[in-house]
């Protein structure tokens, strides 16, 4: 039931991007989609154990008991990919917001339909 919920979060963001006319709302939808994608990657890399406290983060705490770590740690690769993805996401969102501010300065509105009307 976890993966469909994550996908539902993505669909909420997609609905916001497709159906809203406010540019800031569209940026919010993009941010929600980005969160859902990041969360999906981390969910894919989780390794379940009988007890919740047995699961280990991919960080070594001692040189010994490598085998124990190897069988209990979660997947480090999706975490590494998502770590860069989060920072890229904030850069891209800042760029989109800069465009929104510029459009507001130019047209005096956030509404994309009104912008189209004002242009003609």
């Amino acid at each position: 039931m976890v993966f469909p919920l994550c996908f539902a979060l993505f669909v909420v963001g997609l609905y916001c991007v497709l159906a809203k006319r406010n540019t800031v709302k569209i940026v919010i939808g993009l941010a929600v989609m980005e969160y859902a994608t990041n969360l999906f990657f981390i969910l894919l890399g989780y390794r379940k154990q009988p007890r919740l406290a047995d699961v280990q983060a991919p960080i070594r705490v001692s040189v010994a008991n490598l085998d124990d770590f190897f069988f209990k740690a979660v997947d480090p690769l999706p975490q590494a990919l998502v770590l860069t993805s989060i920072v890229i996401g904030v850069g891209v969102t800042a760029l989109a917001l800069a465009l929104c501010i510029r459009l507001y300065q130019r047209y005096g509105t956030f509404d994309i339909d009104e912008m189209r009307r004002l242009k003609g």
Partner: peptide
């Protein structure tokens, strides 16, 4: 990362949001 994000913020803080009638920058 620190310099980039601060740069974006300082530019966005400097941008004025104008009202609709006042088209002068």
């Amino acid at each position: 990362v620190a310099a980039s994000l601060f740069l974006v913020f300082i530019v966005m803080a400097g941008a004025r949001l104008l009202e609709k009638k006042d088209r002068t920058y």
